[in-house]
């Protein structure tokens, strides 16, 4: 397996752990973003960190998006006080529709498999104005277009 194959595998495994923690049956795009932010040693990780988007900051932005979206229909998470449910640590979440789209967009952002790097996958996650990821970033005051520009910049100058 090439380095990018190992990386994609690590992001899927990391995204799966995030989905499990969420109680989500599927790995969605925002789980992959959390996994990219938690995986050190890539330009994608450096771009996120430089924008103040460490894993924890992204988690908080996602929580805010969840609360914000619920409040639009008059629902407050705080009004539910059931105990935290147990998770099945052996369950392997499947790749969801939003994660699949993000991978496709990331692959399309590269010129081919040999060119494909982590920053392309980050671009794939950022290259949409629809869904949980752009909504969470907007609520956190992050300029998505600027973040994409920075990711593209690293692709021109950095090997990984």
């Amino acid at each position: 397996m090439s380095a990018i194959d190992h990386y994609i595998n690590a992001i899927i495994v990391g995204g799966g752990a995030e989905a499990l923690e969420d109680g989500s049956a599927a790995i969605e795009a925002h789980h992959l973003l959390l996994a990219i932010a938690a995986h050190e040693g890539t330009a994608a990780h450096r771009v996120l960190l430089a924008a103040g988007l460490g894993r924890q900051a992204i988690r908080e932005a996602l929580d805010r998006e969840f609360e914000h979206s619920l409040s639009a229909v008059g629902v407050s998470v705080a009004s539910f006080d059931l105990p935290e449910p147990s998770r099945d640590p052996k369950r392997a979440p499947k790749i969801g529709a939003s994660a699949r789209l993000a991978f496709e967009r990331g692959f399309a952002a590269s010129t081919g498999k040999k060119d494909l790097r982590p920053a392309h996958l980050l671009l794939g996650l950022l290259d949409t104005h629809i869904g949980t990821v752009p909504r969470a970033l907007a609520l956190a005051g992050v300029d998505r277009a600027d973040l994409m520009a920075r990711a593209r910049e690293t692709l021109a100058h950095e090997s990984w």
């Binding site: 989500s24 969840f66 979206s69 629902v75």
Partner: peptide, 15 residues
């Protein structure tokens, strides 16, 4: 966009 995001969030909350 807000209405659709509310659907996603409500499904997640229901789960």
């Amino acid at each position: 966009a807000d209405a659709l995001a509310a659907v996603v969030a409500l499904r997640r909350l229901a789960d």
